[in-house]
Each structure stands twice: as C-alpha cells, then as structure tokens.
Design a binder for these strands. Structure first.
Length: 505
DNA sequence: TCTGCCGGGGC
DNA sequence: GCCCCGGCAGA
C-alpha cells in the first residue's frame, strides 16, 4: 500500500484518479484490475484503453513529438509481459503490426501467449535505455512507446513518503471516491502510469499556454492527467462531449482536476456549451488557459520561477490559479486571447470553484500548523452548491457595507491572502457567527499588506441588478435573535433597517 | 401581523 | 457618511 501510495503521490495521481471516470462505465474484470495495479510502475506501459492508444498513436505520429519512443519488438527480444497478474519474462515470438499484437513466449510459464503490444515492454528498456529505435524512425515504425525518460521525473523514495503527504493523499483519495469517480485502486494506479505515459504528448499538445520548456515530470504527471480516454467506450456524454468534442489540444484536461477537486458527481457540469478554463490569479496577470497543465506551467514559470529543486515549492502553482466556467464561445475567445492577460475576462459567468488558492494546504512557508489537513472536506467546494448553502464558507464578501466588517487576512501564500471577516458583532454575539465570509485578497507583490489589516480587497461581482426584492432569507436576524429590546446588539444594518449583515442567508 | 430590507431623506 | 424611517412585500 505504501508503495502504491507513494506512486500516487509521486504522480500526483489524485488528479489522475479523477480521470478514471465512473467505474461502472467499464468495470474492469478482476484479473485486469490486478494486472493493472501491478502494472502501474511501469513507465512504458500504456493504458489498455484503446481510445487512449488511438489518441496516443495519433499524437505520436505527429512531427515534433518528443519524449516518445517507438518500440518494435523483434523476435527473440526479451520482454516483460503481464500475465496472470504478474510480470513475466518472455521472448518475443512475433509482433504483428497490423493487429498490434505481440506473441510472446513466456519463459516462466513455458507457454506462448498473444497479447497487445502495449502490454509488453522491452526488458532492456527498464534499465538504461537500450536498443529502442530512435524516434526519428517515426513514420515507418508503427508501434511507439511513450517513455518518460526524457522528462525529469523526480525520483521518489517509494516507501519513504512523508506522513503528511500520505495523509493528504489518503484524504484526497477518499474524497475523490464518490460513487461516480470511484474505481478500483488498481485501475487508479494504472492510470497514474498511463498518465505518465501520455504526458509527453499532452505537454506537446498544449498550445494555448505560454509554454515554458522546463517541464518537470512531476508536474506533467499531475497534468497530463486526463488521458482523453477513460476506459469505457460507452463513456458518458460528459466525457465524450468534452474530451473528444474539442479536439483542439487539451481535450479532457478539464474533466479531471476540477471534478477531482470538487468531488462532485459527474453530471454536475460540463454541460454542452460550458468550458472550463483556468485563470491565473497572480496579481496583474489573469491569464486564462485552457489546460491545467498550461496554467500550472504558466504560474510556475512566470510567477514562481522554476523552483523545481525545492520541495518546498512543489505544487505551489496550485494556489495561483482558479477554475472558471465559460461558455464555449467565450472560452474560445479567451483561449484565442490567451497570450495576453485577460484580467477582465468579461463573460466569466462564475467561478465554479473557489480558487485552489483557498484550499487549506497552503505553501509550506505559510503553513504554520502541522501536517494535518484541517477541515479539508469543508474546504473542498462543491460547485454551486456551496455558494447557495446557508452559512457557506464561500459566501463571497458582499458589497453591501453598512457596517465595517473587521477582517483579517491570513497569508496563505506570499501573494494571496485569505481574508476572514465577520460582522462587528458585540462580544455577546461574536460567537454566533464565527465566519461570515471569506474572500480572496491579492496583494501587490511590491506592496505586501499588513497581515492584520482590516480591509477587503476583492469583493464579489456586483450583485445582480436587483430591481426585484431580495427574497427573504431563512436565517435568523438580529431582531429575532436579540429582540427589539436589545436593539443595541443588532448589527448596524439591522439597526438601520438594512439587510442584515450578521446573519446572512 | 410580523419581519426583512429597499429606498429615500435628514443631519 | 452616518443614521433613521416609510413603506413594500414575503412569511
């Protein structure tokens, strides 16, 4: 388990786990699951998913694809193959290009099997890097193997995963195991592997970002995520529509991360015309990219600097982008304008999820508490649900300011401050409404705000033009709570007969 | 009838 | 800007 976990951690498979899609779509047979699980660490193994293979081949055949390796199995070649749930050594008998099948003579079992080429990998490749044909062979060689050797994959000690990472992984993994996203761990692991395998072309396919060339394997693992082929041909329209409907480049990116983060049932969004974009939250940037890879890379390269060396800054990019839902047209437009900062991305209908920046595990530099993950569940947003839910943490700071709302900002990261504020309630009431609202604040890099300064920098988009009267809330109001006789304890708004600021709906 | 709060006005 | 209140509308 530990090794599996470490594998997951290493690949940031939490994102990847989401890619799997509903297990029901393609319930893997038992042996297959087992097989896949074992197969996970193999870097060359491509997912069995045929559609993924198709995609893979397509991309691989494209010129300029790097980090890929073609493998032509020669008779007599020593290979590894998965058989009976374990890795077996065998010799290649025959490699049928047409069917992409390889006949292998298993040395251990003393029998001959025929399996798909992607289930076979060269034994020599595992070590250094043997007789694989050079990638230039390209067009003629029909079989390819994406290999991550060209990517700087940080070595991770398989069993020496830090406890907090394990905890985080476990928590997040469990969170990602909604009935929809749940899938056998083996498959999950497999996808970690297949994701890694697909990364190179994922990366190369990502054209919408500004693309730094310093692609670390670590990150690509987290991002290549959405192999556009969940292992279910009868995938739901959600997947079909998004992963395949937009063949541009990052197809499928958005199917993973957000869903993973939001841990919500699949049909929740990805409605036909809605596209998920990723917006850089860095001050004065606002760059909008189509892919999570792109945005991470953007943040990492442009804002954070490429501090791949430091574990401390790993994954910090996560805190600097947010996911936005856009109409397809708007998304296209934004993507077209992705080269320039689009801070005023006008048609942003909604920030469907709180920016990752708000997620509790802040960068280590700002994290003073231990390795625990306080209230992770409560922070994991659930899309629109959380916004309408009473007492939601994600209630965006209202622009209604009949009272001074003392707030303080918690430096989540050098440039992002989580502002927590509540109504200026008298002492007796302060316990009644612990957290009224939170809002993200961005400080100018050159002008770091005092940590405890009480002002809100970012507010929600202006309230909808409410010619119509605001519906009455269900929550108690100051009048009810304190009574008319304790009017002095009411919030200012209530005293002024304005919308109550203490008991927001 | 009570309650929440918008809109307006006085200071 | 602070404060108050008439009056509307929902409960």
């Amino acid at each position: 388990m530990a090794s599996v976990l470490s594998r997951r951690l290493g690949k940031r498979s939490l994102l990847g786990a989401r890619v799997l899609g509903p297990p029901g779509a393609a319930p893997p047979s038992e042996p297959q699951a087992e097989l896949l699980d074992g197969v996970a660490p193999q870097p060359f193994l491509v997912s069995k998913d045929t559609s993924c293979q198709e995609q893979l081949k397509e991309v691989l055949k494209a010129p300029g694809t790097s980090g890929l390796q073609q493998v032509a199995f020669q008779p007599g070649q020593k290979v590894y193959v998965w058989y009976g749930g374990q890795e077996c050594t065998g010799l290649v008998e025959q490699h049928s290009w047409a069917e992409d099948k390889v006949t292998v003579w298993l040395l251990d079992q003393k029998l001959q099997i025929c399996c798909k080429a992607e289930e076979v990998w060269l034994a020599e490749l595992q070590g250094a890097f043997p007789q694989a044909p050079p990638p230039e062979q390209g067009s003629q060689a029909p079989a390819y193997r994406p290999v991550s050797r060209n990517i700087d994959v940080p070595k991770r000690k398989s069993d020496a995963v830090e406890m907090d990472e394990m905890m985080a992984a476990m928590v997040l993994t469990s969170l990602s195991c909604s009935p929809v996203v749940q899938s056998p761990p083996g498959v999950e692991a497999n996808f970690s592997a297949s994701r890694q395998a697909c990364d190179p072309w994922k990366e190369s396919g990502d054209v919408s970002d500004s693309g730094s060339s310093t692609t670390s394997g670590h990150w690509s693992a987290s991002s290549g995520v959405s192999t556009p082929s969940p292992p279910h041909p009868q995938a739901s329209p959600k997947y079909l529509g998004d992963a395949f409907g937009s063949p541009q480049t990052d197809h499928g990116f958005e199917t993973d991360s957000d869903a993973f983060l939001l841990d919500e049932p699949a049909p929740r969004k990805r409605k036909n015309s809605v596209k998920v974009m990723y917006k850089c939250l860095w001050p004065n940037c606002g760059k909008v990219l189509r892919s999570i890879v792109g945005i991470k890379r953007h943040v990492k390269a442009l804002h954070l600097g490429d501090t791949v060396d430091s574990d401390q800054f790993k994954r910090e990019e996560d805190f600097y982008y947010t996911e936005v839902q856009m109409k397809e047209e708007a998304a296209v437009a934004a993507a077209a304008a992705a080269g320039t900062p689009t801070a005023d991305l006008a048609p942003i209908p909604s920030v469907t999820s709180p920016p990752l920046a708000i997620l509790p595990p802040p960068p280590p530099k700002a994290q003073t508490s231990g390795p625990e993950h306080p209230g992770l569940e409560s922070y994991l947003p659930s899309g629109a649900l959380s916004k309408s839910a009473p007492g939601s943490f994600w209630h965006i700071q209202a622009d209604h300011a009949y009272q001074a709302l003392p707030s303080f900002q918690i430096p989540v990261s050098p440039h992002i401050y989580t502002s927590i504020s509540w109504a200026a309630a008298p002492s007796t009431a302060s316990s009644l409404s612990p957290v009224r609202s939170r809002s993200l604040s961005f400080s100018e890099p050159q002008q770091p705000p005092p940590a405890m300064k009480s002002h809100l920098i970012v507010t929600s988009p202006p309230r909808a033009q409410s010619s119509a009267r605001k519906a009455r809330g269900e929550a108690k109001k100051c009048r009810k709570v304190y009574g008319i006789e304790h009017r002095d304890q009411w919030c200012t708004a209530c005293r002024w007969k304005k919308a109550c600021q203490r008991f927001l709906d």
